[in-house]
């Protein structure tokens, strides 16, 4: 082997090892984080002392605050008799997520359809980066905007009792979800082969009929994946709901009531909690729940998208 090719292969080896290492570090990091969160939540299942206050049944089933009183779901981790029902938080998270998605998905999909199918190219080159820039707004800014500005208008508009509620927090959350859904949906629509559009136009279809009946169905797997990604973002988003939700842990499905989300609970309480206390371990358990939520949603979403793709391309047999 000539010296030059030898040094070549050595540098090749070094680069390869470096790339492998970087990949390994990020994967190991993720796994360690999950192990740590899982380990810290374990006492909820194992420690008899903690299970007396916060066993799974105490976390998920209604409890009487005082003996003999009516059974309720309550999250009051720092009262004299701490109560650790997660139901109000789960309800709050789902409620805000639902409002956010109801707001964001139609908006993002309509915008994506417009930019990919109808907008002239100069407009498209403007709109796409601007909407994607929305994703770069720090969520604390979005939360601040929702808390100070939007909440007042939303309250006046709908004549609501509470200034901070699931509607205004949901809309703010939706604003954070829009760019996520938009970008992916737009990519999916743009990736639809031009030959489908030509085939449809050549049959005498209008651009709208083509977009609605050919392009949209053809892009559906990608669009669905975009919505799943948006859902994941809405569930995990913390800062916006922390600031704009009112943080009242009430179990009410009404979107006009304030709420408290799982993620905001961790953010608000982890800083103050006594290390190793029941409260501390339950907060980690919430983290595990959030992780499992998003993991399963992504997993099911991917499974569904894959099946849909196979169905569209005629390879499912």
């Amino acid at each position: 082997m000539k010296p030059s090719s030898l040094s070549h292969s050595v540098s090749e080896k070094i680069i390869e090892t470096f790339i492998h290492l970087s990949a390994a570090v990020s994967i190991v990091g993720l796994v360690l984080i999950f192990i740590f969160i899982g380990k810290e939540s374990l006492p909820v299942f194992t420690s008899p002392e903690i299970r007396r206050e916060a066993s799974l049944s105490k976390i998920f089933l209604p409890q009487s605050p005082e003996p003999g009183e009516e059974k309720v779901f309550r999250w009051q981790p720092v009262s004299v008799v701490p109560k650790y029902s997660l139901l109000p938080l789960v309800v709050g998270t789902l409620k805000a997520t639902a409002v956010a998605l109801l707001f964001a998905i139609p908006l993002a999909l309509a915008a994506a359809l417009f930019t990919s199918e109808f907008a002239p190219s100069w407009l498209r080159e403007w709109v796409k980066p601007v909407i994607e820039l929305l994703a770069g707004i720090p969520s604390v800014v979005m939360g601040f905007f929702a808390l100070i500005v939007m909440a007042t208008y939303v309250q006046e508009l709908f004549g609501l009792d509470f200034r901070l509620n699931a509607i205004s927090a949901g809309i703010a959350l939706g604003l954070a979800v829009v760019p996520v859904v938009y970008t992916m949906a737009e990519d999916a629509l743009s990736a639809v082969p031009q030959s489908y559009r030509e085939g449809s136009i050549a049959l005498g279809a209008t651009p709208w009929q083509t977009a609605w009946r050919v392009v949209l169905p053809a892009a559906f797997p990608g669009i669905f994946a975009a919505c799943i990604l948006g859902l994941g973002r809405a569930i995990g988003e913390t800062m916006i709901v922390l600031m704009a939700s009112g943080n009242a842990a009430v179990s009410s499905w009404s979107p006009t009531d304030p709420f408290r989300s799982l993620s905001a609970t961790i953010a608000a309480e982890m800083g103050e909690v006594v290390r190793g206390s029941t409260h501390y371990h339950v907060l980690f358990f919430i983290g595990v729940l959030l992780f499992l939520f998003t993991f399963f949603i992504n997993y099911l979403g991917q499974l569904f998208v894959e099946r849909l793709r196979q169905k569209l391309s005629g390879t499912d047999k």
Partner: peptide, 19 residues
Amino acid sequence: IRLRKRVGMVFQRPNPFPI
């Protein structure tokens, strides 16, 4: 629309819709 209904076209690559 009427024109393209009367004058149909097939393309180089078959382009059935994914339905």
